[in-house]
C-alpha cells in the first residue's frame, strides 16, 4: 500500500501489527504495555485506507517480538490483525491472529459475583459466541462480555 509506506517508515527489528480494526491502535499499544515512557521506537498509523477493512490501524514496535499471550489479547480486540516479525528490515514470519473458540486466562469475568473472581485454583474461561462484534460468555456464570468490557481490564 503506497499510503502506508509514505506514512510509516520501516523498522529494523521487531514486530508490525497490521490490519488492526480502524481506531483500535491505541488499545493494542495499551495491551503491549507501551506507556510512552518505555524506550524503543513505536510507530502508530490510524485510519489508513485498506482494501480489506476500508480503514485499518498499524502499530510497529522496534526491538520486540510478541509473546503468545499478547497475540491472543490482540486477537480479542482486532480479530483480523496480522503479526509480522521483522529482522533486518525483512518480514521473516507473517501470520494472522486467530481467536480460539475457548479463551483461557487472558481476561477476567466482568460479573463481580462470579466464582472465577474469588480465590479458587482455576483460570477464567470463556466461550467466543461472536468474533466481530466480539461477544464472549463466561464458562462459570454465563455472563456475556463485549469488547468494551474487556478493554477496561487491559
Amino acid at each position: 500500500m503506497v499510503e502506508t509506506t509514505l506514512l510509516v517508515s520501516k523498522i529494523k527489528n521487531g514486530t508490525v501489527i497490521d490490519h488492526i480494526t480502524g481506531g483500535h491502535a491505541l488499545d493494542v499499544v495499551k495491551i503491549l504495555g507501551i506507556t510512552g515512557r518505555t524506550r524503543g521506537t513505536v510507530l502508530i498509523a490510524m485510519y489508513v485506507p485498506s482494501k480489506q477493512l476500508t480503514t485499518k490501524d498499524i502499530v510497529k514496535v522496534e526491538g520486540r517480538e510478541l509473546k503468545p499471550e499478547e497475540v491472543d489479547k490482540i486477537a480479542l480486540l482486532a480479530p483480523r490483525a496480522s503479526i509480522n516479525i521483522i529482522r533486518n528490515y525483512k518480514v521473516i514470519n507473517k501470520k494472522r491472529v486467530r481467536l480460539p473458540d475457548i479463551i483461557k486466562g487472558i481476561a477476567q469475568c466482568g460479573n463481580p459475583a462470579c466464582i472465577s473472581n474469588s480465590n479458587e485454583p482455576i483460570q477464567p474461561k470463556f466461550y467466543v459466541k461472536s468474533q466481530d462484534p466480539l461477544m464472549i460468555r463466561c464458562h462459570y456464570c454465563s455472563y456475556i462480555m463485549e469488547k468494551k468490557d474487556i478493554l477496561e481490564q487491559f
Binding site: 469475568c109 460479573n111 459475583a113 462470579c114 466464582i115 472465577s116 474469588s118 479458587e120 482455576i122 463466561c138 464458562h139 462459570y140 456464570c141 454465563s142 455472563y143
Partner: peptide
C-alpha cells in the same frame, strides 16, 4: 448451594 454465580459448575469440576 453457594452465594456466588458459577459456583456449582466449579464444584462439579
Amino acid at each position: 448451594r453457594h452465594p456466588l454465580e458459577g459456583a456449582a459448575r466449579l464444584a462439579a469440576e
